[in-house]
Simulated scan of single mutants.
Amino acid sequence: MAVFVALGAFLMTLVGGWTAQRVTDRRHLVLGLAGGLMLGVVGLDLLPEALDAAGEDLFGVPRALLLFVGGFLFAHVVERVLAVRQAAHGAGEHRAPQVGVTVASAMVGHSLMDGVAIGAAFQVGAGMGVAVALAVITHDFADGFNTYTITSLYGNEKRKALAMLFADALAPMVGAASTLLFTLPEQLLGSYLGFFGGVLLYLAAAEILPEAHHEHPALSTLLCTVAGVGFIWLVVGVAG
């Protein structure tokens, strides 16, 4: 049952990626919306879940927040190291394609955890499973949109962006199927969500949104960002 329901997440992720691909002539609007979706997912979905699930504090600070900051710093360090290495080989200030693939891979991992969450919820009961599946399926539009956008933004060819999109779409079904074999500890899941949230926030604040406003500092771009946050708020509210 859980795997069948996860098929909805597969389809919704592909729809999100297809949407991002079709509106490339309005790239600044795409990036503005992607930044808003990422900000909304981090602040309104991932971080609250991480704080609930990650367990006790470490030296007076919630474990999820420590890993959130760690994820932000990790993304910053990885990007700087790759940028310096690329500059040393005469590539100038262009973004390193490896960063896009790395972040997209992390998003695939997040989608895998979404599938695990669906499967675990169905182990508790059908009602819980349907509620969790609804939340996952709805926000997987944003996952597909962001996976394709991020991979493309860092200079990867279309074929690679589509491959990452398909992997992201398939991941929830794989995650749901895996719960037939094991159950992921709640604290481990919460820790992962905190770390991944930090990575996404860095990409949204330091890369996606600045790029969106670089050549088109228009009100429409800002409105797309606000709309992205509002969409995630609506999803969280309906799912809750």
Rank of each mutant, 00 (worst) to 15 (best):
L234C: 14
P48N: 12
G237S: 02
G197E: 01
A204M: 05
A142K: 00
A117Q: 05
G237M: 01
E157S: 02
V199G: 08
F166G: 02
A75Y: 04
A83Q: 09
G35S: 10
G190H: 04
V229A: 12
W18I: 14
V130L: 15
G144D: 00
H216Y: 10
Q187E: 03
G198H: 07
L170V: 13
A96F: 13
R22M: 12
E207G: 05
L44H: 06
V5D: 00
G35F: 11
F74S: 11
F122E: 00
G228R: 08
G71A: 10
L153G: 12
M38Y: 10
V226W: 03
V130Y: 10
D143G: 09
G36C: 06
K158N: 01
V174F: 04
V103N: 03
L82D: 11
R63N: 08
V238G: 13
Q98M: 10
G36V: 03
C224V: 06
G190R: 06
L165C: 07
V84E: 05
H76A: 12
R27H: 09
D114E: 12
V226E: 02
L58Q: 13
M128I: 13
G197M: 02
L162Q: 09
Y154S: 12
I118K: 00
G16M: 12
L46K: 09
D45H: 15
G32I: 11
P62V: 03
F196E: 09
R26Y: 15
A104I: 06
L222F: 14
L73T: 08
A206D: 15
R63I: 00
L46R: 05
A50P: 02
W233N: 13
A87M: 10
W18H: 12
P62G: 10
K158I: 07
V78S: 05
A75F: 05
Q187I: 01
Q187M: 08
V61M: 11
A53R: 13
P217K: 07
G92W: 12
H214D: 15
D45M: 09
F59I: 13
L184R: 09
T24I: 09
A64R: 05
G119I: 00
D143M: 05
A161G: 09
G144T: 01
E215W: 11
P48M: 13
F145K: 03
V77F: 15
G175N: 04
V124I: 13
R95F: 15
S111M: 03
A96L: 11
L66W: 14
T183L: 02
A177L: 08
T13K: 06
